[in-house]
Design a protein around this nucleic acid. Structure first.
Length: 262
DNA sequence: ATGGCTCAAAGATTGAGA
């Protein structure tokens, strides 16, 4: 019987947030961590600092925006193999997906398109991108019985995940077009690990920097750990850790962690 | 009041995020 902790965190600039990441990992030595919004090129990825902290990494960065990574604890995880960057069915210059296999576990870190606003060109990109994710996921769940898809999905699955559902109704992150695609993802056989358990009301993973969003808990739950059936069946906890959102110069996202008891 | 803050590129502002 061994325990595995799978996590995700949109750090909003790894360069700025590296001290927070290292501090968080010290208190939360998770086995696998998907990162999003690195906002740096691969030559600037802090390999040395993470190695010192006991973590290996595979990563796909770019200048200015996007960028994703998977960190793995070297003392507990085998070396990653079959590293794949991007969605096979959606060639893209934006670095939004990285996947790797650790033993018999396939772990995918994704940064879903934001979409700007419903009806915009970026929203069309988001829908097409999500459709590609759905297509590729339908293959992955067949190939990998133990599959974890984690990341910033930029979708609040239902009204429980929104501080003010009325004002967000139909808006980007909450629209039917996005939520229908979220449900289609779950229908492929993935489980929102957070909803396997009783959770406090108004638990969110993102709060706007403006308007005292965090202080007023005006947030959304858009960062998720999705598990295939085999993993969901032995998931014993799934939480969002608000703590680092209170630190000085925080990311606007908080990490989410699922615990697996194998 | 459709802004408010933060980051990256710039080297003053602007685009992007959600």
């Amino acid at each position: 019987m061994s325990m595995l902790q799978l996590a995700t965190w949109n750090v909003n600039s790894l360069k700025v947030r590296l001290p927070h990441l290292l501090q968080w990992l010290e208190k939360n030595p998770v086995d696998l961590l998907g990162l999003q919004e690195l906002k740096l090129t691969d030559d600037a990825f802090p390999v040395q600092e993470l190695t010192m902290a006991g973590y290996g990494a595979v990563f796909a960065g770019q200048k200015t925006y996007n960028g994703v990574a998977i960190l793995y604890k070297r003392s507990t995880m085998p070396t990653p193999v079959d590293v794949e960057v991007n969605l096979p069915s959606y060639p893209d210059e934006q670095q939004r997906v990285i996947a790797a296999t650790f033993g018999d576990l396939r772990f995918i870190s994704a940064y879903v398109v934001n979409g700007s606003e419903v009806g915009s060109e970026k929203f069309e990109y988001k829908k097409a991108w999500l459709d590609a994710l759905l297509q590729d996921c339908s293959q992955w769940v067949k190939t990998y019985p133990k599959l974890a898809l984690v990341g910033d999905f930029n979708i609040a699955p239902d009204d429980r995940d929104v501080h003010d559902p009325a004002s967000w109704a139909g808006q980007v992150l909450c629209s039917d077009e996005e939520r229908n695609r979220w449900r289609a993802l779950l229908n492929l056989g993935l489980t929102d690990s957070f909803r396997l358990f009783e959770q406090p009301d108004k638990t969110f993973s993102w709060w706007d920097y403006r308007m005292l969003g965090f202080q007023k808990n005006k947030g959304l739950r858009i960062d998720h750990v999705l598990l295939s059936e085999a993993l969901a069946n032995c998931c014993t906890a799934s939480i969002i850790d608000r703590a680092p959102r209170k630190w000085e110069k925080p990311s606007d996202h908080a990490p989410a962690i699922a615990t697996i008891q194998e």
